[in-house]
Nucleic acid binder design. Structure first.
Length: 548
RNA sequence: GGCCCGUUGGUCAAGCGGUUAAGACUCCGCCCUCUCACGGCGGCGACAAGGGUUCGAUUCCCUUACGGGUCACCA
């Protein structure tokens, strides 16, 4: 019997399939020209990173805008990193930001699609079949090196300034015979299966990254591990087998993978697969002490996707922000196409920045404010209610009176120039506080004395009429101001300040403070209308009594 | 350290050999205005450094500096 065959049977006696079986089981996808098949392939660590969301988002947009497919594959080949409900957490997290999949895992155990299983731990047999095939062809071999041995050769290599790793002469089990392997296995030794790398250190490999452009690197010469000692594949091998069998056309992932592309390309080559196109995304950075660094899971709260949910950024706003980071001409497009769904935007990987973008919360806030300003009162209510149920008990209680809440949220909304002052839902309670509680400490402008303020309030209360309309209200206030010695408009006042005590703005500020406890609020008439006649009167009375 | 990648205002970024070097966010000023927010107008503010190539370099090449990534039986 052929030595390689003998080895293959020794290592994989249980494997009774051949690669062709899988080729027929997972046929090439029938899709229209230019359709992109891509995927999001996280480990179920239970933590959804902002960078992960970004990568998923890019994959989603690439697939959607090309008429392709987007699927979720779970990379759980490392049991140590797994977390309970890790899959669910990822699926739910992405879904809450509007990212859905055509195929892939739905929960820990369920999936949909024709190219599964979509969780690597369930694909063990597939990987082993392909490795067996490589062993048969003499392209892979079992390696019995211990951790100590590995560390030792590494040390030596570092000292001699050589490439660290198992390659060339350091690959001492490259030519092990089947009989020797059997003896070691029988003796209970652990082993991994390594690639017999056909790489040449003097040759270079070129490839085109869809984002970074042409890249040239030395060929891989390391005998990378294909199968770990527990029989599960490494990322490198799983990536190659899965993306081939799942017929992925574009691999979109973080650029920390760029250094292993030569290894991946070599693996595709030895397996006889056509490699996919690669698009490596630069990481999202964070500023620290004037420098840039990768957004860190440990140090930066905004690294966790949960952060945005807790703060109450609407998913749509985060989406808009991701779009502007991804394709910078999106903002222009959005301004010109305010109501179009973003799928209509011509999204392109080639428009992505090669350098890592700095996470900019000011920009997110601005985008979110604009986004929220376009929502209807009803939509705002739904969002806020939803958010408050989990994050703000008191606010949630207040929202029980929906009719009133809709009035509050409806103030200066739905107009050509809607208010733009809420960036996230955790600001809502404070922002709407005075609609629910009477202001206690009233601080009036310094240029108005207490007796003067009381006079203004008394006059206003006398003047204020339940039946006054929005159109009548302000002119009436102007007249009142004038009667009391204040200029009708700031302009008039500025022209001859010595003739007046102040202007109508001073008068309205006193009323504003009495009613809301603040000097800055939306339109006073609308606020009064929302509070109701009785409440307004009571607040005025309270303010007057405080001043006397 | 080897190997990759990157570097345009404080931030995100257009730009692909000849431009007064767009635009957005932030900040500042003015206007609008009962206050605030919005909106309008305007302002501050940049091609990392040095060599080439070229009639001409932000754009092309080299070197340096800085930043990032990678060099696992983790992904």
């Amino acid at each position: 019997m052929d030595e390689n065959l003998k080895m293959a049977e020794l290592l994989f006696p249980e494997v009774d399939t051949i690669p062709d079986d899988y080729e027929t089981k997972y046929p090439k996808r029938v899709l229209k020209e230019g359709a992109v098949v891509t995927r999001f392939a996280p480990s179920p660590t239970g933590f959804l990173h902002f960078g992960g969301l970004f990568a998923a988002f890019i994959g989603y947009m690439s697939a959607k805008t090309s008429g392709g497919k987007f699927y979720l594959r779970i990379e759980d080949t490392d049991k140590k990193r797994e977390v309970e409900n890790g899959v669910r957490l990822i699926v739910d997290g992405l879904e809450s930001f509007g990212i859905t999949f055509d195929e892939g895992m739905l929960s820990e155990t369920e999936e949909k699609g024709e190219y599964g299983p979509y969780i690597q731990s369930a694909r063990r047999g597939i990987y082993r079949c392909f490795v067996k095939d490589l062993v048969k062809k003499g392209l892979a071999y079992p390696c019995f090196m211990s951790e100590e041995e590995l560390a030792e050769i590494r040390q030596g290599q570092e000292k001699e300034k050589k490439l660290p790793g198992v390659w060339g002469e350091y690959a001492k089990y490259r030519d092990i015979t089947a009989d020797e392997a059997r003896a070691r296995i029988d003796a209970g030794e652990d082993y991994v299966v390594r690639l017999r790398s056909p790489g040449d250190a003097n040759k270079r490999i070129k490839f085109k990254d869809l984002i970074k452009g042409e890249i040239e690197m030395p060929e891989n010469i390391i005998d990378v591990v294909l199968l770990k000692k527990d029989g599960m594949p490494t990322y490198h091998f799983a990536h190659v087998v899965d993306d081939h069998l799942m017929r992925t056309t574009h691999v979109i992932r973080g650029d920390e993978w760029i250094a292993s592309v030569p290894t991946h390309l070599q693996l595709f080559y030895v397996c006889g697969f056509k490699p996919p196109k690669y698009a490596h995304i630069s990481p999202i950075m964070k500023e620290e002490n004037g420098g840039k660094r990768k957004l860190s899971k440990r140090k930066d709260p905004e690294a966790a996707v949960d952060f945005y949910k807790k703060a109450g950024y609407p998913a749509g706003a985060v989406w808009e922000y991701l779009m502007t980071i991804a394709n910078s001409d999106y903002e222009q497009w959005r301004m010109a196409n305010k109501n179009e769904p973003c799928e209509k935007f011509k999204f392109s990987l080639s428009k992505m920045s090669k350098a890592g973008a700095l996470f900019d919360i000011a920009k997110l806030n601005d985008i979110s404010k604009t986004y929220i300003s376009t929502l209807t009162a009803e939509q705002v209510y739904d969002y806020v209610k939803n958010w408050a149920e989990e994050n703000d008990y008191l606010l949630n209680e207040r929202l029980l009176n929906k009719e009133y809440a809709l009035k509050v949220f409806g103030i200066e909304r739905g107009t050509p120039k809607p208010r733009k002052d809420i960036a996230k839902w955790d600001e809502v309670r404070e922002y709407t506080e005075y609609f629910y509680t009477r202001p206690k400490e009233l601080v009036y402008p310094e240029n108005i004395s207490a007796s003067e303020a009381a006079e203004i309030l008394r006059e206003y209360k006398k003047e204020f009429d339940n039946s006054v309309t929005a159109e009548e209200w302000f002119p009436k206030l102007r007249d009142m101001a004038e009667r009391m010695g204040y200029a009708k408009t700031p302009k008039v006042y500025k022209a001859s300040p010595e003739e007046y005590k102040g202007h109508v703005g001073d008068v309205s500020t006193v009323i504003r403070v009495a009613l809301t406890g603040r000097t800055n609020t939306p339109d006073l008439y609308l606020i009064s209308e929302t509070l109701g006649y009785n409440e307004v009167c009571e607040r005025l009375d309270f303010a007057i009594s405080e001043l006397s």
